[in-house]
């Protein structure tokens, strides 16, 4: 087709040529690579390269604080040392305890709150906003704020507990007693992150079409039956997603523990990430801590993969 009118010619000249025409000789695939390339390079530089470098370091005796010392290969010694170190296993147990209880409490309370908020009642928007506030705060603020609340002599938490139980407020220290310190952290994490679980559960509840409940009511299903047969199965993938996110997040929990107890009293609340930080950046055992980091990475990655497979299985039912 030829362009005949002067107006059409001017329009054709003003219109930019297609990219492929301008970049002569480049296929669509190459152009796609040009666009994706910088992102890929960035990912390689900040994710893949450090990972490969960490794997390399984990087989050496390298210490970052001794740049002039000779670095030699130690085979799998670091991995053996990590896996046979009782302090590492103690930290892993502490982490597991922490992950289990925070996820259990956050899921139960989060789902209950979502279920209640999902009932349309007056002012539910206001209550939703109010409940969401803790997760919007900075962990540094939350940690310091709760450290004050837990102060035995002047803290509000102890005062309220004393009012309810009749014990003296300064007779117990949430952050200083071996039996209470882990629970002090679990309470704070639950307070902060339950709204997040609630939000995901609420999305799940709101995604259930009303006609399913209408059909269940036609079938004379009780509210309890509707909950077990409709609500829970349909919201389960969302709950599992929330558990996955919180599980990964809490497995590497550092900030809150560091601010509240620094791993103490003794080593009672020393979770794996605190141990890793101490080994890597305080003791400067770079090779050893690299091995520990790889073990943690493989554990989280492996568990997350198994979990995602289970999640897909449930979704496909």
């Amino acid at each position: 087709m030829s362009i005949t009118s002067p107006l059409a010619k001017r329009l054709a000249q003003a219109t930019p040529a297609p990219i492929a025409m301008r970049m002569r000789g480049l296929s669509d695939r190459w152009i796609a690579w040009i666009f994706v390339g910088p992102t890929m390079l960035l990912l390689l530089a900040i994710n893949i390269f450090p990972l490969i470098w960490t794997i390399k370091l984990s087989f050496t005796n390298f210490r970052a604080n001794r740049p002039n010392a000779e670095v030699s290969g130690v085979g799998i010694d670091n991995y053996v040392s990590v896996l046979t170190d009782p302090d590492i296993w103690a930290a892993m147990q502490t982490t597991a305890h922490f992950v289990f209880w925070t996820i259990t409490l956050q899921t139960l309370i989060g789902f209950t709150l979502a279920y209640l908020i999902d009932r349309k009642f007056r002012g539910h928007g206001f209550w939703t906003t109010l409940i969401l506030i803790p997760m919007m705060l900075s962990p540094a603020v939350v940690g310091n704020f709760w450290a004050f609340l837990y102060q035995p002599q002047t803290g509000l938490f102890n005062a309220v507990a004393a009012f309810l139980t009749g014990v003296s407020p300064s007779s117990f220290s949430m952050l200083g007693e071996v039996s209470l310190a882990p629970w002090a952290i679990i309470i704070v994490d639950t307070w902060m992150w339950t709204p997040y679980v609630m939000l995901i559960c609420l999305a799940g509840l709101r995604s259930i079409p009303d006609y399913i409940y209408e059909a269940a009511e036609v079938d004379r299903a009780s509210k309890w039956r509707q909950f077990w047969s409709v609500t829970l199965p349909m919201v389960l993938p969302f709950i599992m997603l929330a558990i996955l996110f919180r599980g990964i997040e809490n497995f590497k929990m550092f900030d809150m523990v560091n601010l509240l107890t620094s791993g103490g009293p003794g080593s009672t609340t020393e979770v794996a990430s605190i141990t890793l930080k101490r080994e890597a950046f305080e003791k400067w055992r770079t090779g050893y801590s690299s091995a520990f980091a790889i073990i943690l990475f493989v554990a989280v990655f492996g568990l997350a993969n198994i979990y995602v497979k289970a999640l897909n299985h449930i979704k496909s039912r």
């Binding site: 035995p152 002599q153 300064s170 007779s171 220290s173 952050l175 200083g176 620094s262 103490g264 009293p265």
Partner: peptide, 11 residues
Amino acid sequence: YKGSTPPGLTN
């Protein structure tokens, strides 16, 4: 630590 310090002096 146990007998002569204020409560909560753990860290």
